[in-house]
Structures are given as C-alpha cells and as structure tokens.
C-alpha cells in the first residue's frame, strides 16, 4: 500500500522487576499511517512471535483513551508527541517514513518496571485508598436532586474528575511528582458539597500516602499539565496546597481514619 512507512524502534527491554534492562533496536516495516501506535507494536510483536522472540510487553486495554492503562514514553514525551491524547489514540500519521522512535517505560521510583514497558502504578491506588472517597455506604442516601450543585462547580469538579490515572504527569515531571494526579482527586471532592465533611482530613491522608510512596515534590514547572491526556490543570495543585496548609495549620480536628472505623 502506498504511503506506508518503515521505522526503526528503540525499545526498553527488561525481563522483570529484578533484572536490569537495555534498549533494543527493532525494525517496524510497512506500517500504515492509519494504524494506532499500539497497533504498530502489535504488528512488530506478531513478527517477533513468529521468530520465536518474546513480544514486547506493554500495558493497554480499552484502546480508546479512557482506561488509563496504556503508557509509553515516546521520543521523550509521555503518550507521544501530540497533546491531550493517550498512546492508544496516537496514530502513525504523526510519524514519518524512516523515523527512529524511542520507546521507554514511565520512569519513577514509585513506578517500578514489571516487564519491558509496563510499570507498577499501584501507588496511585494506595493513595486513593488512603482517603479518596466520600464515606457513604450503599443505601440510605438522600434524593439526588435534594443537593443543589451550581453548574460551574459541577463542571469544575468534572474537569478534575476526568483524570484517568495513567501516570503521564509523573512520567513528565522532572521530579517524578504525583501532585497533578493527587490534586485532581483531592479537588474533585473538595469542590463538591458531598466532599466537605471529610475535606480537611482527606487531603492530609492522601498527601501523607503520596509522600510515603516516594514521589518527588512539585516544583511548579507545569510539564505535567502540558502532557496530561485529559488536560488537568495546575489549578488543582494550587487548590490542594491551599487545602493542605489550611488543614495542617489552621484546623483543629485530627485526621480521621477514612475507612470510618470498624465494621
């Protein structure tokens, strides 16, 4: 087919968390510009399997930009060269024939490599387990329309809630800081009336867990915001900082255990 491309891939290969890895070069031939980036890797993997080589391992699932499972640091940028999309939404028409593409995993102490390009992002889960919720049980809640939420607040909370937890912010940050992710989660609840009862405690628990996971600190470079596939803004970080300092320095109540105690 005309217009198809031949590419050189430099890919990080690492057997497992304990092994050391290295960059390995592969050819990707006859690649259609209509393929997605992951479909290009599928094609390479098919040829590797037939050659009895181990296919390149990478995380992926929904392939429509919402599950947050795909990652890949492509040519020095998380999710590749285009703004506001994930790797699975990146299409090969963004590259040109003969190009060399470097593909690496997210790099962060808090995201250890599992294999090749896949990393362990369970730190994100643990941060949310520490307090990223409204403590309500199923049932016994008021009618949904009893709570009036101004559209601007609902929209703003939604903007924070669009975070897909992919970790591109950590990958992009020179300090491997998770502040954009954590602040998006904190912001959503801090903005909504439902989140108010636990607002001051939640932010402290989540930040404490974030620190424990070994992420770096925020130096306000804005690289995270620029690379976020869902365009989460730095305003979230500022909002979280404000809440955190208010909670730590001016609120008298103690942090409560967010699970709400025993059964």
């Amino acid at each position: 087919m005309s217009g198809n491309m031949n590419l050189t891939l430099k890919v990080w290969r690492q057997k497992d968390a304990k092994s050391t890895g290295k960059m390995v070069t592969y050819k990707a031939e006859n690649i259609s510009p209509d393929m997605s980036f992951l479909e290009m890797l599928d094609v390479v993997n098919e040829s590797l399997i037939l050659k009895n080589d181990e296919p390149i391992h990478f995380d992926h699932d929904c392939r429509e930009g919402i599950c947050g499972m795909c990652s890949l640091y492509i040519n020095g940028r998380p999710h590749g060269p285009k703004r506001a999309i994930t790797t699975c939404q990146l299409h090969m028409r963004s590259f040109h024939d003969g190009e060399t593409i470097t593909i690496e995993p997210w790099r962060a102490a808090a995201f250890p490599v599992i294999k090749d390009l896949a990393v362990d992002r369970s730190a994100f889960d643990r941060i949310q387990q520490a307090g990223g919720y409204v403590s309500v049980n199923t049932g016994g809640v008021p009618d949904a329309n009893e709570l009036l939420i101004p559209k601007v607040i609902a929209d703003e909370a939604f903007n924070s809630a669009t975070c897909i937890g992919c970790g591109a912010c950590v990958a992009a940050c020179k300090n491997a800081s998770a502040m954009l992710f954590v602040s998006a989660k904190v912001s959503q609840m801090a903005l909504l009336p439902q989140g108010q009862p636990e607002r001051w405690s939640r932010v402290q628990s989540m930040v404490a867990q974030m620190d424990e996971e070994g992420f770096g600190s925020c130096t306000n470079t804005g690289a995270c915001e620029a690379e976020c596939p869902k365009e989460i803004t730095l305003t979230n970080i500022s909002r979280m900082n404000n809440d955190y300092f208010s909670a730590k320095l001016f609120r008298e109540e103690k942090v409560h255990d967010h699970s709400g105690g025993g059964e």
Binding site: K10, T102, E104, R107, A109, A110, K174, N175, A176
Partner: peptide, 11 residues
C-alpha cells in the same frame, strides 16, 4: 527529587 527517578530517560 533525584531519588524519585533513579533511572533516567534515554530520550
């Protein structure tokens, strides 16, 4: 912050 990224990116 340096400790938070023990392996640097190649690209």
């Amino acid at each position: 912050n340096r400790k938070s990224r023990p392996v640097a990116y190649a690209a």
